[in-house]
């Protein structure tokens, strides 16, 4: 598992990267009431705003952590946005993205580095 400074977690599944937000981020965000997901097959560039999350109070964006193609989105979040709070590291994932070269993940933090950042 890798982590971004924007509190996303990145998990490799074959040639895909699964993206979600950390428990810390989900707690900070508060109760999620709406998630807007990207289109499947969309080509995105690192830094693009690909997901919108709305809590009771405010809207936040999730940025694409890498360049690639969105190959799957977590449709369950449309009807049950609170999965992001209930199970951020599991059932609350957002999308899977195909990347050409997984070595682009190397620059992201490992768990210890992430824990240090939020400490």
């Amino acid at each position: 598992m890798k982590y971004t400074e924007d509190h996303e977690w990145l998990r490799v599944e074959g040639d895909l990267v699964v993206v979600g937000i950390t428990e810390h981020a989900a707690t900070q965000l508060g109760d999620v009431v709406f998630v807007e997901l990207p289109e499947v097959e969309a080509m995105v560039a690192r830094g693009d705003e690909v997901v919108v999350i709305e809590s009771v109070k405010a809207a936040s964006d999730i940025l694409a952590p890498v360049d690639g193609e969105i190959v799957e989105v977590n449709e369950a979040l449309v009807d049950t946005p609170r999965l992001v709070n209930d199970d951020p590291l599991g059932a609350g994932w957002f999308f899977k993205i195909r990347v050409d070269d997984l070595s682009v993940l190397d620059e992201y933090m490992d768990e210890d580095e992430y824990e240090d950042m939020i400490a």
Partner: peptide, 12 residues
């Protein structure tokens, strides 16, 4: 205090 540990939804 914008919220406590219960969170906005539960407090509401």
């Amino acid at each position: 205090p914008v919220q406590y540990s219960a969170g906005v939804m539960q407090e509401h």
